[in-house]
Amino acid sequence: MSPTAVLHSEWIKIRSVRSSFGALLAVFAVALVFNVLLYATVGGPEPDGAGDPVADALFQITFAQIAAIAFGATAVSSEYVHGAVRNSLAAVPHRSLFFAAKTAVVAVAALGTGLVTAFVTFFSGQAFAGEHAIGLGEPGALRACVGAGLYLALIALFAAGLTFLLRSAVAVMSLLIPFLLMVSFVVGDVSAGVADYLPDRAGRQILHQDPVGALGPWAGLGVTALWAVAALLAGWWAVTRRDA
């Protein structure tokens, strides 16, 4: 089997299913719309410029990550609707290759979209920020933009890995979205320490100019990467061991 051919095939699959390709575009669209609305109407999350200017500039990533979860989940779950995976595995019986190709395509698509989203929305908001506007020269800004792209890709992979395991986008999204939007929020205020190691909070350290908490920006992103790797290992185990 040619890995290039299998990668190409997986790209066609993602490209040709509305839900997954739509979710990928939504990562960018949600971030852009939210960011422009926030800056154009009230001048940003903290318009007086009192907060962390880098974190404010990338506030929209919190919302884009929901679309990233949807992308990672639907890109994989489309295989588990009506047993489509049987067609896929009949074409590519080498299961690790099938898994690796799909994961790689999700990673590259999410990273590309994530980076574009981070940089474009960084500037789109600043265009409305007036006197408080910052550029990429601001300390931590470039790191935060690159980190935001990586973060979105890791979150998509986290969701993809879980979907290989649970075989349902609905299950994964109803698990992850409330978790990221609420649990992490609530628990985060109650107990610092453990909460710093949750997949989303750890990874979002890199969006701050001067992150507070146990983890530094890159260490935080590393923790999110570990979560993603753990989910992918579980997914790989399920794909290679289960009957299709």
Binding site: M1, S2, S9, A91
Partner: peptide, 8 residues
Amino acid sequence: RALAVSNR
């Protein structure tokens, strides 16, 4: 197309 491409 997705099936064909995977098997060249």
